[in-house]
Amino acid sequence: MQNQSLSLDRFSVGAGAARNALTESAAVRWLLTGLALAFLALILVIPLVAVFTQALDKGLDAYWAAITEPDAMSAIRLTLLTAAISVPLNLVFGVAAAWAIAKSKFRGKSLLITLIDLPFSVSPVISGLIYVLIFGLQGWFGPWLAEHDIKIIFAIPGLVLATIFVTFPFVARELIPLMQAQGTEEEEAALVLGASGWQTFFRVTLPNVIWGILYGVILCNARAMGEFGAVSVVSGHIRGLTNTMPLHVEILYNEYNFAAAFAVASLLALLALFTLAAKTLLGKKVRQEAQTTTK
């Protein structure tokens, strides 16, 4: 809804009293705006800028060296690998959950939705802890895994599991309200016309939610690549083997290798900026998808 407070400025309603009651005085406005911007600058902008300036502190060569150093490279590879596994899996889950919730009638929908939101209310450290309790040396399956020489905790599978846990709601949370808003009429129409279930899904449902999927995937990916707390618990912090980029940043920082730490961090910051841009651009498209064609 368009807010009217500014156009009303030019709207003289008798004494200035009524006009002043509809918007703050210019002084107050300037003050509030200044305060807000100052706060944002302090809290958001300065840190953002600091990442990049610190990264380039020792010059471009050092920056490049920090990123291409073998341990850094394997951290990058591991981050990409983890995301490449968790995001598609969570995508399939998100689509399946949204289909079940939006296109069918059954009891327990709100329970399901609450369960899906669970990772958001659990601390990342606890998210990692639960997997250690199951797969760790002293965990449920610990002895069995040790017997068969399968490593989950302190190895890549554990990382992937923990990442899946913290990121699986993202796609589902985008698609569920979207599909619910779109209803089931188009799918019913397709069925009446003779389409099979899969035909209906691929030719009617999927094209209608494609922007929602993309949006959810980008958010999911951002979290998957940036997750720290959960993977910190399940990783062994083994350089070159079980370190994702955030973990590598931690190691470099703890070694007082600040420039290098910030160099790797800057890559993650770039990912964040890309995510923000995508969020803004796609957000509108997703809102349009949610509006069904006017009746």
Binding site: E188, A189, A190, R203, T293
Partner: peptide, 11 residues
């Protein structure tokens, strides 16, 4: 079947 709100495939 012709639906009340047409249910045309919007894309």
């Amino acid at each position: 079947f012709v639906f009340q709100h047409y249910a045309l495939f919007r894309h």
